[in-house]
Amino acid sequence: MGILEVKNVGKRFGGLQALGDVNLSIAENSVHAIIGPNGAGKSTLLNCLVGKLIPDTGSVMFDGQSVLGRKPYEINQMGISRVFQTPEIFGDLSVMENMMIPCFAKRDGSFKPNVFINMLKDREIVERAEHMLEEMNMSDKRHMHAASMSRGDKRRLEIGMCLSQEPRLLLLDEPTAGMARADTNNTIDLLKQIKEERNITIAIIEHDMHVVFSLAERITVLAQGTPLVEDTPDNIKGHPKVREAYLGETQEAA
């Protein structure tokens, strides 16, 4: 029984069957990659997990509780954090403030009208945020405008923000998309380090095979809205069906 159990999930957009009949089980404390060609339904599946979309059929259970019908903020409060394809951070705010917001959300819940507290005097939150920035090696950037950072730093901040909430499941949607090689490698190292240091389950959707094979312990291959195979990276590499559907062309590209 995995921490995330996806059973018979289907989603249709008008005439397009985006997800057919997806069954997926992600084991606790593993790194599970979901790969597949464009249009395979990876992002749709992810959106069904975080409450952005509600599947037409099937069930999604996180730690024994259904996530279906819950709002994204409720699902986050259950312990699922999501990293987006383009880093979603608070660009107008400073790096420190960016880090303080998830700390507040983790401690105070989804809404707290604490109007008469000076946020900088909240030692617990400030220390927590400073600690997280240190872990992310971003302490020197704490006063920077988040929008003015490089893409790699934004990604690092976004991951740090997610981790500050101590999620049990971290969902990453193409975390290295549009990144320079150096930034990609930094991100891989960061994720490896997270994996080693924390009790956390990571589900990753990725195009870049280099990233997938450096990180994943299990891989699910999606094609045309249904899982084709699920196996270890070594077996996936040699799997004839996968080569045919997907890997053949991208391995040459990568």
Partner: peptide, 22 residues
Amino acid sequence: SPFGMMLRAVKSNQQRLNYTGL
């Protein structure tokens, strides 16, 4: 206040705020 910071966060990125559990 933290409340004021959340309001600025609403202006900056509502999506991230939602996915931060707020």
